[in-house]
């Protein structure tokens, strides 16, 4: 067969369900089993090159593709939005390569939720699974440049330098200045980088009824928080971990300008010549609260 004739397949179709070949799927699934068995441990994997650029969520995408079955219902969010270009693009690719897979924007209906930057506000339920796109899998990266040494630190449970970093923050700013990717200890052992979710979302991982799977495509690492597992943010006894307050200057709590919620993570939308507006970051939660006015 000449090279040209081997290219004569229709361009749009994927040969196999989920794009990845069987070896890749097997590697991913084995990796995930190991990650679930050792909560918080970073499992190295080969990370295939995908038709979407690294840094755009290929780690999460590979997890989704290796896990999805036609009976699944997939939700893809980017910063809480189902319709951001990146989420749309990932969803487009996943549905094209997984024929039969249904999609949804409603958190309650989804079985697989691939996300960047957010955990849905709605309480998750058994039968669902969270998949995170991860830029930096290692919480020690901010304090130790050598990966070989970092692995040794994890093995020894030596997180001293991370604690020192937190302490230095407290000394310099009177608080821990980490706004997202807040390090947390899983099942009393490994410390993870929970991906760039805001502090607001971190408590949702604690004893959650669903599995949280993390995929870093560029850094070629997988890790997981199994269901009903302790996830404790790093904090000092006298300076407890706190989530975002969304307080105005008069200390009142900002509310979503659309649905009025005061119990959600808000986005600040800059306005020209006016004070900023505050809106729910989780679009589905905002729409749900309004009874889905657009029938979304």
């Amino acid at each position: 067969m000449s090279p040209a004739s081997s290219l004569q397949r229709p361009a749009s179709s994927c040969d196999r369900f989920g794009f990845l070949d069987d070896f890749a799927v097997r590697e991913m699934r084995r990796g995930m089993l190991k990650a679930l068995a050792i909560p918080g441990y970073q499992v190295p994997y080969a990370s295939r090159e995908m038709p979407i650029a690294r840094g755009f969520g290929t780690g999460g995408m590979q997890l989704t593709l290796a896990l999805a079955v036609p009976q699944d219902r997939l939700k893809v969010i980017d910063q809480g939005a189902d319709d951001s270009v990146n989420a749309v693009n990932l969803r487009r690719f996943i549905t094209a390569s997984c024929p039969g897979l249904a999609t949804t924007t409603r958190t309650a209906e989804a079985t697989l939720i691939q996300t960047r930057h957010r955990v849905p506000e709605r309480q998750l339920a058994p039968g669902q699974m969270m998949i995170y796109q991860v830029p930096y899998p290692d919480p020690l990266q901010i304090v130790e440049p050598s990966e070989a040494k970092r692995r040794r630190c994890h093995a020894h449970g030596d997180y001293a330098r991370l604690w020192v970093k937190l302490y230095e923050d407290v000394v310099r700013f009177r608080e821990v200045s980490i706004s997202n990717r807040y390090p947390a200890r899983v099942a009393g052992r490994y410390i993870i980088d929970p991906s760039p979710i805001p502090r607001w979302d971190l408590p949702k991982l604690h004893c959650s009824p669903v599995a949280h799977l993390f995929g870093a495509g560029r850094e070629k690492k997988l890790y997981a928080v199994p269901p009903f597992t302790e996830v404790v943010p790093l904090a000092f006894d006298d300076i407890p971990f706190a989530v975002e307050g969304f307080r105005a200057t008069d200390c009142s709590r900002h509310a979503c300008a659309t649905c009025g919620a005061t119990d959600t993570f808000l986005d600040e939308i800059p306005q020209v010549g006016a004070p900023p507006r505050w809106l729910c970051n989780d679009q589905d939660r905002c729409a749900e609260r309004q009874g889905y006015p657009d029938g979304a």
Partner: peptide
Amino acid sequence: DYLQRLFRLD
């Protein structure tokens, strides 16, 4: 940015 890098055999 959002191209899927699949061959356009056409």
